[in-house]
């Protein structure tokens, strides 16, 4: 079970800060995940946009990265500052 988290403007697309369902077993990389999320949320480019970074267990991923073994995957739009 992997926790998929969304922040900022992505939550306007997902409606939630956490993915409510499990991701399919054939989703193995950050690229797979981005493409699958576009389909899952019926949005053409939101999750494959290069401004969206992915953190695996709290560390920014150097993509493409394998997501096997990560318990928490965060999809992060550009930060907004404090």
């Amino acid at each position: 079970m992997q926790n998929i988290l969304f922040f900022g403007k992505l939550t306007d697309v997902t409606g939630n800060m956490k993915l409510a369902s499990d991701i399919p077993e054939n989703i193995l990389t950050t690229h797979d995940l981005r493409v699958w999320l576009n389909t899952h949320f019926d949005t053409p480019h939101t999750f494959t946009h290069p401004s969206i970074r992915i953190a695996l267990d709290g560390e920014i991923a150097h993509e493409p990265a394998n997501i096997n073994g990560a318990t928490e995957i965060a999809l992060m739009p550009p930060v907004g500052g404090g």
């Binding site: 922040f7 900022g8 992060m76 930060v79 907004g80 500052g81 404090g82």
Partner: peptide, 11 residues
């Protein structure tokens, strides 16, 4: 730092 790089999302 806080205004440009801190990990905050602001609505």
């Amino acid at each position: 730092y806080l205004k440009t790089r801190a990990v905050f999302w602001k609505k």
